[in-house]
Amino acid sequence: MNEQTLKVQKIKNGIVIDHIPCGMALKVLKILGIEGDRGSTVTMAMHVNGKNGPKDIVKIEDRNLDEREIDKIALIAPSATVNIVENYEVVKKHRVHVPMQIKGIVKCMNPKCITNQREPVESEFTVLSEEPLILKCRYCGREMKQKDVIESII
């Protein structure tokens, strides 16, 4: 067993979110609604030396991610990969990607935007740029950068 594996233990079943930009692991947990007080066992490693420089890793046992959650991860960690582990083996590995339209997962930062009122609509954004991330609200036209997006994930 090498030093790296000792730091971040293998899991039997669940997901491994790898290649998270340094310092973003806690935010990934936050948007997945994982607070560590119940449910899955969570292992997290920050600033781990990887082949392409330092990164964060999150391992969550006995849990799956739906598409909406994967989209959320893509917004804050576009370089991340999601590995699905079954019986200690990675059975599926996919890179996250930022979808063209973001619906219902980010709140518009403009307090005067109609989507922030009591109206029966979901927020919706067009992705103007993935790297750096720039979203544009389909309703009020306000542009949001990654820093704002992280604060506004629903």
Partner: peptide
Amino acid sequence: RHPLEGAARLAAE
């Protein structure tokens, strides 16, 4: 005409 931004887009929907 509405004081909130994006109101017309919502109305159109």
